[in-house]
């Protein structure tokens, strides 16, 4: 009885099954019944599971030698379909009110730039976005996943890239800095839906 109870509790599907158990069945009947149903369900789910690797991150290399990957999580804020004004303004807002964006996965399209700080022996990578007049620029620093090896997998300076990563704020010396962590560089596909 205990075994049956353990099997039946957990989520709503199991609760529904419990409701369908007849009072006239004994324990072994119930277990057999459940086992056969579970086997049927497993067989039904198998094709879906086998399809998963197709959507999982698949590293690829583009013409310039940059490693392209797919963002593993859901993207909360996608800036790739926006025009220059909107991207610039949204990034400006991220800098003005960073707390509202912490933990969100952001995808951004802009110009790749790299800076090496000798005093701290640290590399900074950023995606810079210019406004419509091209005189003002705002950008987001990003840290690529460990799959990327510097400098082979990184894009050439000044190239247009799409980066997706989790927004975070960290203390860099005296300054509060913004960063897209666990970031990946994605293939750019124009988003016409905005």
């Amino acid at each position: 009885m205990c075994a049956a109870l353990i099997l039946l509790c957990g989520c709503s599907k199991e609760e529904a099954r419990a409701a369908s158990v007849s009072n006239q069945q004994n324990v072994s009947d119930v277990i057999e019944d459940l086992a056969s149903k579970q086997e049927e369900e497993t067989n039904e789910q198998q094709p879906q599971e086998s399809a998963e690797p197709e959507t999982a991150p698949v590293p690829a290399i583009d013409e310039s030698g940059v490693r392209l990957m797919n963002c593993s999580g859901n993207v909360d804020i996608d800036l790739t379909g926006m025009n220059a004004n909107m991207i610039y303004s949204e990034v400006y807002n991220m800098m003005a009110e960073p707390d509202a964006y912490i933990g969100k996965t952001i995808r951004i399209y802009g110009m790749y730039t790299h800076h090496y700080e000798e005093s701290s022996d640290r590399h900074y990578y950023a995606c810079v976005v210019r406004d419509a007049l091209a005189c003002c620029a705002s950008g987001l620093e990003f840290t690529l996943t460990d799959d990327y090896v510097w400098p082979d997998d990184y894009p050439p300076e000044g190239s247009e890239i799409v980066v997706a990563g989790v927004f975070e704020v960290y203390q860099d010396g005296y300054f509060k800095a913004l960063n897209l962590s666990d970031a990946v560089i994605e293939k750019y596909t124009p988003n016409t839906e905005g």
């Binding site: 400006y92 807002n93 007049l133 005189c135």
Partner: peptide, 21 residues
């Protein structure tokens, strides 16, 4: 760090209207 950007933004408006608090 971006004097020309600041000047350009103040003279031509740029996106100032889209970055209001």
């Amino acid at each position: 760090a971006n004097v020309s950007g600041d000047v350009c933004s103040t003279l031509f408006g740029s996106t100032s209207i889209l970055t209001l608090s």
